[in-house]
């Protein structure tokens, strides 16, 4: 029995040692690799002056043609929309972005993401290699109840986030493979039109308030960043589109573009295609350019 228990303990010790080694290896690769996602890009960017930053979900990543907006406005622009990201994720992006860079104007996309204050697990999983970064650490501590496991159990943070930062992504980072969408631009256009468009069901009721959005607004005020809140278009078969009227009452100044776009400009009901994205970027610039100019005069 003694011999067996010794063998068993040596196996456990070996497993722990391997977990530490793998954790160390993954962290080093992610920290030193060329950024393959937008959060990595934000963390590794220093001393940049961004005139315009777009934040939100895929409805930003697919809708804002960064190059077009930059040409129209003549301002340094970046699209940091991430598929599946919620307001909580955008808040982390903002905190990390302004820690080492300056930002003049932020366009924040608001839609049904107003209903949630929780992190989406998408952006946060990409932040896991950087958990020792004080901003990431504080954010995770505040919003995740498995903070201790994530911080102190070796490799746990990588294991539970394997679809985003597992072996496949580790390997691609190790060989410095370029991502499909360059994070420094961030526009991820969709092509085609999935007809017939299946309409979204928007919420019937609306949340009283969103504390994450309030915190976002506070940080922007404190850092003298102009914040423009807007809603992207939905296709005509969307149900309960009056949700945005209620949302406009909750958020004064919200620019509502939810209606009015032709269905041929959509890839699917919640996402514009490339042509739609160009029209929307154009419209967004035209309707908000005065604010950008006044910002420039400051």
């Amino acid at each position: 029995m003694k011999q067996f228990l010794t063998y068993l303990f040596s196996l456990v010790a070996l497993t722990l040692a391997l977990l530490y080694c793998c954790d160390f290896l993954y962290t080093q690769v992610y920290i030193n690799a060329t950024p393959r996602n937008k959060l990595q890009y934000i963390i590794e960017t220093e001393n940049e002056n961004f005139d315009v930053v777009f934040l939100g979900s895929s409805r930003v990543a697919n809708h804002i043609d960064t190059e077009l907006f930059e040409n129209l406005s003549n301002k340094k622009t970046i699209n940091l929309g991430v598929e599946g990201a919620g307001l909580n994720d955008n808040l982390l992006q903002l905190k990390l972005l302004i820690a080492k860079n300056t930002v003049k104007t932020i366009y924040l996309q608001i839609d049904t993401n107003f209903e949630s204050e929780n992190p989406s697990n998408i952006v946060i999983s990409e932040a896991m290699p950087f958990i020792s970064n004080p901003i990431v650490k504080n954010h995770v501590k505040k919003y995740f109840n498995n903070f201790n496991k994530l911080t102190y159990i070796p490799f746990y943070r990588y294991a539970i986030n394997d679809p985003k930062i597992g072996f496949r992504e580790f390997f691609l980072s190790l060989i410095n493979k370029k991502p499909r969408i360059a994070p420094s631009n961030g526009f991820a256009p969709k092509f085609g039109n999935r007809t017939p468009l299946r309409g979204h069901n928007l919420p019937i009721t609306i949340k009283q308030e969103n504390s994450v959005l309030n915190e976002f607004i506070e940080i922007c005020k404190k850092n003298e960043i102009q914040l423009l809140l807007y809603t992207s278009p939905y296709c005509s078969s969307t149900n309960n589109l009056n949700y945005f009227e209620k949302l406009t009452l909750k958020i004064p100044g919200l620019i509502n573009y939810s209606k009015g776009f032709n269905d041929t400009l959509f890839f699917n009901c919640g996402h514009l295609n490339n042509k739609g994205a160009q029209e929307f970027t154009n419209l967004l610039y035209i309707t908000t350019k005065n604010k950008l100019i006044s910002d420039a005069k400051k």
Partner: peptide
Amino acid sequence: TLVSIILLGVYS
């Protein structure tokens, strides 16, 4: 095998 379980396993 241990390394494969750690690196290639599906835990999410």
